[in-house]
Every structure is written in C-alpha cells, then in structure tokens.
Simulated assay, not measured.
Amino acid sequence: MVRRHLSSDEQALWTALTRSVRPLRPGARASALPAVPVKPRMETGLTTAPAQPALTPPARTPSTILDSGWERRIRSGNMAPDMAIDLHGHSLAAAHARLNQALAAAWARDARVLLVVTGKPPKTGSAGGGARRGAIRGEIGHWLETSSYADRIASVRIAHQRHGGEGALYVILRRKK
C-alpha cells in the first residue's frame, strides 16, 4: 500500500488531536509523525490560517449493561420508578418538551429511575392509512441522546410488563457527584 502525505489541513487536524490526547502510560512514546509547520493558504490575495475544529471531550453515553443488581431488578419487575411521565396523546413537540421537563425535575429531585410511557411500537406488517403510530417511540432515542441531560443518563431500558412493557422505558439516571 502506498503511503500518502497529509495535506496541510489534515496535518493541522492531526496536530490538534494529538495535543488533546493524554497517554494511558505517562512514559509512553510521543507521536511517530513529525510536527510540520502549518503554512497559511492563499485566498483572494489574503492569507488565512486553516480553521481549527473545536475539540470537545466525548460525552458519556448510556450503558447497554448495568451491574447485576440493576439487571436483576429490571428483569424481575421489582424496580419502583421514582417518577413517571406519560407522553400519550401529545404532539411530537409537546412530548419532547414534557420529556425535557421530566428529566430536569428528576435530576433536581435526585430521582434514579424515570418511567417514560411512550405507547407500544406499531405492529409490523399492519396496513393502516391513518396517522403514523409510534412517532414518539421512534423519536425518543434521539431526544434522549441530544438532551442537555444526556451525559447524566446511565442507561435506557425497556420497562417490565407491569410498568408497560414495550410501551414504556426506564431512563436510569446517574448519581450526582
């Protein structure tokens, strides 16, 4: 495989990235690529420096697996939600706003488990000409990922049958530090 050289923009991005990384072992060797000075590029007779991307630390994402105590309580249905919100009958915009309000209230009250009732997902293969069913259920994952409380969510799980089964979710919040 033939190696190609990095363009000045790619080199600037690489340099910015390597400056933001901390080694796992403090004695680890430095980057194998030599630092190349970034040359300004010419645009309409004016020199401009290449745009530096804003580097932000990666957000914590919800876990797919919790510890055995949580897993056992979810499977057996012995979990008692601290708060619950029902999004049935709301428009997408209203449901999104109510979800954000519920997350804020749950965080303020130190709640650990928020039960979000969305309604059952539409059955596959059903021919229906009316309004689209399951729209809130389809959007809730995106809403939780983009919420200002996304880094405070430990896990999102389908609720036990006694709390709504596939028509509801447990949003498990992290502890405050």
Score class of each variant (00 low, 15 high):
40 P>N: 10
44 T>N: 15
30 A>Y: 01
131 A>S: 09
119 G>P: 01
154 A>I: 02
163 H>A: 02
104 A>S: 13
64 T>C: 13
150 A>I: 01
106 A>Y: 00
42 M>R: 15
96 H>W: 00
50 P>D: 03
85 I>D: 03
169 L>F: 05
113 V>D: 02
84 A>K: 02
150 A>R: 04
26 P>S: 10
52 Q>W: 14
101 Q>V: 06
76 S>A: 13
51 A>P: 06
116 V>S: 00
92 L>E: 11
159 A>I: 00
123 K>Y: 12
120 K>D: 15
83 M>C: 08
97 A>R: 09
142 H>C: 11
81 P>S: 08
131 A>H: 07
127 A>Q: 09
168 A>V: 04
68 S>I: 07
32 A>F: 05
49 A>L: 12
126 S>I: 09
114 L>E: 01
162 R>Y: 05
77 G>V: 00
102 A>S: 13
58 P>V: 02
115 L>S: 04
150 A>L: 07
102 A>Y: 00
30 A>M: 03
43 E>A: 05
162 R>P: 03
107 W>V: 03
130 G>F: 08
65 I>W: 15
143 W>N: 07
98 R>K: 14
69 G>P: 09
29 R>F: 05
160 H>C: 09
118 T>I: 03
25 R>V: 10
159 A>M: 03
112 R>H: 10
77 G>Q: 02
101 Q>L: 10
65 I>Q: 15
61 T>K: 15
135 A>K: 00
105 A>W: 04
166 E>P: 09
155 S>C: 12
26 P>Y: 07
131 A>P: 04
33 L>C: 08
31 S>F: 03
151 D>L: 04
166 E>W: 11
53 P>K: 04
144 L>P: 06
141 G>Q: 02
156 V>M: 08
38 V>T: 14
105 A>V: 07
40 P>W: 11
117 V>C: 06
51 A>V: 08
153 I>K: 00
98 R>A: 10
46 L>V: 13
76 S>H: 11
86 D>L: 04
154 A>K: 04
164 G>Q: 06
99 L>M: 10
